[in-house]
Design a protein around this nucleic acid. Structure first.
Length: 231
DNA sequence: ACATTAACAATTA
DNA sequence: TAATTGTTAATGT
């Protein structure tokens, strides 16, 4: 665990490729659904009846406030689950889950979850662990309030690339298929600022911009840049 | 100093 | 053609 992990704990990324947890068991025998890019799977304010599991894909978890400003909470990737709060808290979704690429997911109903809670102590342990991670994610949110616009851009790219890297650690040049417009929305800033931040990072040889995307050359360097910034 | 808004040209799918 | 990028100038906090 490096220094970045202490300051910017990527709670939802902790699961190591190849390791199994209770969710993997549960979802290994279930039907899979393909979700096209940009699909809103759970909408902020909406009630939900299912918990979702990402078999292969990338999702943003973000909210919109009354005045229209948006905020990125987390980036979710392979092996992550979402939709816990609306099921177990019996609340509307506090934020939206949006597919950032064509993704494969599986889901489980509220009734089946309740069944597992009654009969499966291993599952109970698992779900508590997941809630702890979600709480940790909120701590990260608080930390992000101190960030300036260009740092939020760096953060968004770092999270996106981190999930991709976790899926495929041997790929050195990480291609993020995300427009600067979308990055601006996720980072709660403007496209001008995104373009400027990217140009700065490009100058340092950390990444390259292409039409409709970003290619990360140095994920570790990006993390170091984020970490070494002063507030 | 840092960021946003509005505008515009150039590039790409 | 529509989407996207890159850039500038003026303005706001």
């Amino acid at each position: 665990m490096d220094l970045n992990e202490h300051i910017f704990p990527m709670f939802r990324c902790h699961k190591i490729s190849g390791t199994q947890d209770r969710w993997d068991d549960i979802f290994s025998k279930r039907p899979q659904v393909t979700i096209p890019k940009k699909t809103v799977v759970l909408q902020q304010g909406q009630r939900a009846e299912k918990i979702y599991y990402i078999i292969n894909g990338l999702f943003e978890y973000s909210f919109t406030m009354e005045d229209g400003t948006q905020g990125l909470i987390e980036i979710l990737g392979d092996g992550n689950i979402f939709g816990l709060q609306p099921i177990l808290g019996n609340n509307p979704c506090p934020a939206s889950f949006i597919a950032l690429e064509d993704s494969i997911v599986s889901c489980i109903s509220k009734n089946e979850i309740n069944e597992l809670l009654e009969n499966d102590p291993v599952f109970c342990r698992q779900i508590i662990a997941d809630f702890v991670n979600i709480t940790g994610g909120l701590m990260t949110q608080l930390y992000l309030l101190m960030f300036r616009a260009n740092q939020r851009v760096e953060w968004a790219i770092y999270m996106l690339a981190g999930q991709k890297n976790r899926r495929n650690p041997e790929i050195k040049d990480i291609f993020l298929e995300v427009s600067q417009e979308d990055l601006a929305r996720m980072s709660r800033t403007t496209r001008v600022t995104v373009t400027r931040s990217l140009a700065d990072l490009k100058q340092r040889g950390l990444l390259e911009t292409v039409y409709g995307g970003v290619i990360i050359y140095d994920l570790e360097g990006l993390g170091q840049t984020l970490f070494s910034n002063e507030y």
